[in-house]
């Protein structure tokens, strides 16, 4: 598989990581320190990287078989019994197949369930749209009580998982499979707060998950052309960091959101909904549009939907009216 679009535009030497590995290591750490910790999965022991967890804690891996409705319901039941269940499955099946269980058994019942959506977005690129998890932000964001997290690199994945474990309530976590670089600078994860990775005055680029490193790479390109872009990592999609959005709108006047998800109802929609009422500014929402994703590698799909570094820089030039004569 080719490297991701995000990675191809960062420094050539950047090492790339599959965040599932960090997820698996952190979950074992949580199981070691807290006996309440259990993993629940739908036969996804391999794809959720739970093999070592299973070897170390065989009783605490509940594999219900290929049965997502049961998987989420059983997670709620385990929480009722005082356990802290991490319910792991590929993003499209966890969310799509078990959405009503997520609504009734987890969100509405407000159970202490951690929904771990593995390999979200375009991670299963060539397998086609049935396997792409791009509707999750839109679906999950409408559920009261639900916290929606999408960490962007291994360090943030670990911190988000530790936070989710100690938080008493429903959490949805996107755990990336598409390889990403370590973000620089590292800003410690804080639930509900966007991390400012680069300050800027001309425009704000808002990334989430895999698109954060792409937004950073775009900001480097733009800086060379005299466009000073702020870069925010919105690893908490819900609740929104309204303070960071207001500051971005007031101080930079233009906003681009970039997500490996459908923009209709996704992070872009969330940002636009908030700003439309409070501080409307020109925006562009980059992500999946109203079409089923075609087949292609994750990098191809990032380019196709215009969420790679080049496309983000292009969108920023259009929105700022800058660099019209400059080479792309």
């Amino acid at each position: 598989m080719s490297t991701t679009a995000a990675a191809s535009t960062t420094t050539a030497a950047a090492e790339l990581h599959d965040c599932r590995k960090t997820f698996a290591e952190t979950l074992i750490e949580l199981a070691e320190t807290d006996p309440r910790t259990v993993a629940v999965c739908n036969d996804s022991v391999g794809s959720s990287h739970l093999k070592e967890f299973q070897q170390r804690f065989p009783d605490r891996l509940v594999n219900v078989g290929i049965a997502e409705q049961l998987m989420v319901g059983a997670g709620a039941g385990l929480a009722n019994g005082g356990r802290v269940p991490f319910v792991c499955a590929a993003a499209p099946f966890l969310t799509g197949r078990a959405l009503e269980q997520i609504k009734a058994d987890v969100a509405y019942s407000r159970t202490n369930v951690k929904l771990c959506a593995m390999s979200p977005g375009f991670a299963y690129g060539q397998l086609g749209p049935t396997h792409h998890g791009v509707e999750d932000f839109a679906w999950l964001r409408t559920l009261p009580e639900m916290v929606v997290l999408a960490p962007a690199d291994p360090a943030e994945t670990r911190e988000a998982l530790l936070w989710a474990h100690q938080y008493d309530g429903p959490v949805y976590l996107r755990i990336g499979r598409t390889k990403v670089p370590d973000l620089a600078p590292h800003v410690p994860f804080e639930a509900g707060r966007a991390a400012c990775l680069r300050d800027g005055r001309d425009i704000t680029l808002i990334g989430v998950g895999t698109t954060v490193s792409a937004a950073l790479a775009a900001s480097a390109k733009l800086a060379a052309e005299g466009v000073d872009a702020r870069v925010l990592n919105f690893s908490t999609v819900k609740p929104l960091d309204e303070e960071a959005l207001l500051a971005a709108a007031v101080e930079t006047g233009r906003i681009i959101t970039v997500e490996e998800a459908n923009v209709h109802g996704g992070l872009g929609s969330a940002v636009a909904e908030f700003l439309a009422a409070r501080e409307p500014v020109p925006m562009k929402l980059l992500g999946v549009r109203d079409e089923f994703t075609p087949t292609g590698s994750p990098a191809f799909l990032a380019e196709y939907f215009g969420i790679d570094a080049e496309a983000i820089a292009r969108a920023a030039r259009e929105l700022t009216g800058a660099g019209q004569g400059a080479a792309a």
Binding site: G73, G77, L78, G81, R83
Partner: peptide, 11 residues
């Protein structure tokens, strides 16, 4: 019933 399964596993 799925939720009850989780409760019984916890017990």
């Amino acid at each position: 019933f799925p939720v009850a399964v989780g409760m019984a596993v916890a017990a």
